[in-house]
C-alpha cells in the first residue's frame, strides 16, 4: 500500500495505524498522529485502517516560541 508519510510517498505493509507506527520504527516514541488532516487519538489507532493514498502525519515535540 502506498501512503504519504509526513509529506513523502512511501510503500508500507501494515494497514492498521498502530501497526504501521511499529513498522515505521516509531515504537515507544512520544508522537501524535493525524490521518488526512484529522487527529487520531492514541487509543483510536488500532481501530484506524488506512487506505491507499492516505496522508499520515506523525508529529513530536519540538522547540517553539
Amino acid at each position: 500500500m502506498r501512503i504519504v508519510l509526513n509529506g513523502k510517498a512511501r510503500e508500507v505493509r501494515e494497514a492498521r495505524l498502530d501497526a504501521l507506527l511499529e513498522e515505521l520504527g516509531y515504537a515507544g516514541a512520544k508522537v501524535a498522529t493525524a490521518v488526512n488532516g484529522d487527529f487520531i487519538a492514541r487509543n483510536l489507532r488500532e481501530r484506524t485502517r488506512l487506505n491507499d493514498g492516505d496522508r499520515v502525519e506523525v508529529i513530536a515535540p519540538m522547540q517553539g516560541g
Binding site: 515505521l24 516514541a29 508522537v31 508529529i59 515535540p61
Partner: peptide, 16 residues
C-alpha cells in the same frame, strides 16, 4: 513548545 514531523530514524523530538 511546538510540534513538528518526527523522523523515525533521527527522533529529534524525543531528545528535545
Amino acid at each position: 513548545v511546538s510540534l513538528r514531523r518526527e523522523s523515525a530514524e533521527q527522533r529529534d523530538g524525543q531528545a528535545f
